[in-house]
């Protein structure tokens, strides 16, 4: 029974890959273990260029793990083993010789809890460019302004750029973290439940922001909130127990899922 489903999902992703002109990410038979725990099982998935891809599923289904595999942050956990292939723009990123720093410069990440550095607002945004060797003050100034504008934060903070980032509200902090990630002009932004720690109003602002950002960036977002996935994503992948159960256009997943488990999850029968 499960093998049939397995085959189904594989077919689905193959179909997706063929119908799509460009994929930023492509994973093939991706498996991941935390020690003995098999956290990701044979994930085959392609992520579209300048699209918002939502990953949904109950807690512990591997969706965050998958996201962190895309920029290899998962390797910070001791005892992790990965097999299979992930290509980013047709480059194998799991290859030994591939520089993770290079990858993470091109792939930004926004975390579950807003995590600004204990620095000023300016210092937070300038951190990325600075570590990549940009020292010119004027250039840094304009990067900071551009990034904050893109995150719709500029008007709120332009008069207090040198105050501590921790004085901002939770929603502002999260937009600051998005701006921080935009400052090094990534191609892809990975978001790990970016609104789960925020109030509804801040959540709405972030969702608006994501819709704008999608014009220029490819976005992968892990979310607990199915309405959020439905509102902002183009494609949705449903993860369960480390497997992809279903992956399709968002409106199809939410209106006519092919797998019973997807339907059950979407209708709140488990979660």
């Amino acid at each position: 029974m499960s093998t049939v489903v397995q085959n189904n999902t594989q077919k689905l992703s193959v179909v997706n890959f063929n119908t799509q002109q460009q994929a930023v990410y492509q994973t093939e038979k991706l498996n991941l273990w935390y020690g003995q725990v098999h956290a990701l099982k044979n994930i085959d998935l392609s992520i579209g260029y300048k699209e918002v891809t939502a990953i949904i599923g109950p807690s512990g289904c591997g969706k965050s793990t998958f996201l962190k595999t895309l920029n290899r942050m998962v390797e910070l956990v001791p005892g992790v083993r990965i097999s299979g292939e992930i290509t980013y723009n047709k480059t194998d990123i799991l290859h030994e010789s591939f520089s993770v720093e290079e990858l993470r410069t091109r792939v930004g990440m926004v975390f579950q809890k807003p995590n600004p550095f204990p620095k000023s607002i300016y210092g937070n945004i300038a951190y990325g460019p600075k570590i990549h060797g940009i020292r010119n003050k004027e250039i840094l100034n304009s990067i900071v302004e551009n990034s904050l504008r893109q995150a719709y934060l500029w008007d709120e903070v332009k008069d207090r750029l040198h105050q501590s980032a921790h004085e901002l509200s939770g929603g502002q902090q999260q937009r600051l973290c998005i701006a921080r990630c935009l400052a090094i002009e990534p191609d892809v932004i990975l978001m790990d439940e970016p609104t789960s720690a925020l109030d509804p109003n801040s959540t709405r602002q972030i969702e608006e922001l994501i819709k704008e950002l999608k014009k220029d960036y490819s976005i992968v977002i892990v979310t607990h909130n199915m309405q959020q996935a439905a509102r902002i994503s183009d494609k949705t992948a449903f993860f369960l127990n480390g497997e992809i159960i279903e992956y399709d256009q968002t409106n199809r997943i939410f209106t006519q899922p092919t797998d019973q488990r997807t339907e059950d999850y979407i209708n709140g029968r488990f979660g």
Binding site: T105, Y127, I131
Partner: peptide, 8 residues
């Protein structure tokens, strides 16, 4: 993590 995420 935030720092590593920026490619540091």
């Amino acid at each position: 993590e935030a720092s590593y995420g920026l490619g540091a």
